[in-house]
């Protein structure tokens, strides 16, 4: 067995604020093998972006990070790690045509001359299935639709042939049809180049479609992780169980009331003591007031005191 591409050991981050710090992420550990596809799921504020940025080494300088992120070999951001944001505006320059933006990556990271880089750029735009790539290469971001912009951002992210692609809610702002196209495209690109993938999303169904492994975050804690089929087929954490039980399916009209999780995600400034899901958990008991430990292996386990006791005390 070869060493993993990436090893996260007890990774965490806090953001200092005027009134107290936000403990945005703590104690995240997992490995990512060469070519493996991991989905990170969680709702708003659960720390998904913090984790994605930490892996890419892009956390804002104000953040205080802990833990260790180890790579099998030295990685250069932008070359060996590609990053796609939810808002393509975050990576596209509004005053430069997209062909040149992609070419610039090739010039900077692959040592190509401008002519060769421009040719490569058109080839890349074709690979992300932009129609008429040689014409669209001269277009500016504002002339493209949201889906097309996201494709261009994807072309930039993979321009230098990264070993890892990180997509932070890259499809969340798009409509369902375009989202499905981009997700399929990411899947193909990653498979073709046997790139590793960290796919951040709030949609567990989408996660189950694209990933080999799912990491579930809740309020800055990794509450469950494991092979996608196991997490979806036999979820262990009450939160994951509730997410799956609450997933609405097209095949039948569900009965009301729909299974719902009571309450709301915790206030990041004032999270509950112990297990952060406990106030909303129908299985919670006194032991949940202590911070639960991770049980199981690295990247395959659950953080719930109830689980070793049988999951549903």
């Amino acid at each position: 067995m070869t060493a993993p591409l990436l090893t996260l050991a007890a990774v965490g981050a806090t953001y200092p604020h005027d009134d107290g710090a936000v403990d945005a992420l703590a104690d995240v550990s997992f490995d990512l093998a060469e070519g493996e596809r991991i989905a990170v799921i969680g709702e708003s504020g659960s720390g998904k972006s913090t984790l994605a940025l930490a892996i890419a080494g892009l956390l804002p300088s104000t953040a205080v990070s802990v833990g260790r992120i180890g790579w099998r070999r030295p990685m250069v951001g932008g070359r060996d790690i590609g990053f796609v944001f939810q808002d393509p505006g975050a990576s596209l320059d509004p005053v430069m045509n997209i062909g040149d933006q992609v070419a610039e990556v090739r010039v900077r990271h692959c040592g190509e001359g401008l002519r060769a880089a421009r040719r490569a750029a058109i080839d890349l735009l074709d690979r992300v299935r932009l129609p008429q790539p040689s014409r669209l290469a001269r277009a500016y971001p504002h002339e493209l639709s949201g889906g097309q912009r996201q494709r261009a951002a994807l072309a930039m992210a993979i321009a230098a042939g990264p070993r890892l692609l990180i997509a932070d809610e890259a499809t969340s702002a798009l409509d369902t049809v375009v989202q499905a196209e981009i997700v399929a495209l990411i899947g193909e690109l990653v498979r073709a180049a046997s790139m590793a993938l960290v796919f951040v999303t709030h949609d567990i169904a989408l996660a189950s479609q694209i990933s080999d492994r799912i990491v579930v975050l809740y309020a800055g804690r990794m509450v469950e992780a494991g092979p996608a089929a196991r997490v979806v087929g036999a979820p262990r954490h009450p939160y994951t169980q509730a997410l799956i039980a609450g997933h609405l399916d097209l095949s039948r009209a569900p009965a009301f009331p729909l299974p719902a999780i009571a309450g709301a995600p915790p206030d990041p400034f004032d999270p509950p003591r112990g297990c952060r899901f406990a106030p909303r958990c129908s299985h919670a008991f006194s032991a949940c007031l202590d911070e639960p430990a991770w049980s199981g292996g690295i990247g395959d386990g659950v953080r719930c005191v109830g689980f070793p006791l049988g999951g549903e005390p």
Binding site: T176, V177, I204, A205, G233, G296
Partner: peptide
């Protein structure tokens, strides 16, 4: 076709 479906393949025998 574009609506994401939860893919529940039979779980591998858990450890």
């Amino acid at each position: 076709d574009a609506t994401p479906r939860l893919i529940v393949s039979p779980p591998a025998p858990p450890a």
